[in-house]
């Protein structure tokens, strides 16, 4: 669910980037926020595919990526061992990387 929102924003943001500027954030100091143009949309689609292969691995990636959880925390939430999370993350990352590779 959270993923969808993020991706929507990314889509909007991508649309926005073509025209608008970037807002300043801070009162006391101006700072640029660089945007490296990471292929969030591609990730979104790949995650969907991964979910069809292994739901839990996709979930691990989601939690790590979009919720920003540490692996130990993911283990807690999903109620699996840390070793399992690590393996899931490793495997999923390989798979997704292959998909995202240019």
């Amino acid at each position: 669910m959270m993923r969808r929102i993020l991706v929507n924003h990314a889509r909007d943001h991508a649309a926005q980037k073509r025209g608008d500027g970037i807002e300043l954030l801070s009162l006391s100091a101006a700072a640029d926020v660089s945007d490296e143009g990471f292929d969030l949309i591609g990730l979104h689609e790949s995650l969907d595919e991964l979910a069809k292969l292994d739901t839990r691995q996709a979930r691990v990636v989601e939690l790590k990526f979009f919720a920003g959880l540490e692996l130990t925390e993911i283990a807690d939430v999903l109620d699996i061992s840390l070793a399992t999370v690590k393996r899931d993350w490793t495997m999923a990352r390989l798979w997704l990387s292959r998909e995202l590779a240019p």
Partner: peptide
């Protein structure tokens, strides 16, 4: 083999870029 090639430089970063720091 194809997957293993991703090991060294995975296209998928550890976490979202720009604002992320390794813990």
């Amino acid at each position: 083999a194809e997957l293993l090639r991703q090991l060294d430089a995975p296209a998928l970063p550890e976490c979202l870029p720009t604002v992320c720091l390794p813990a």
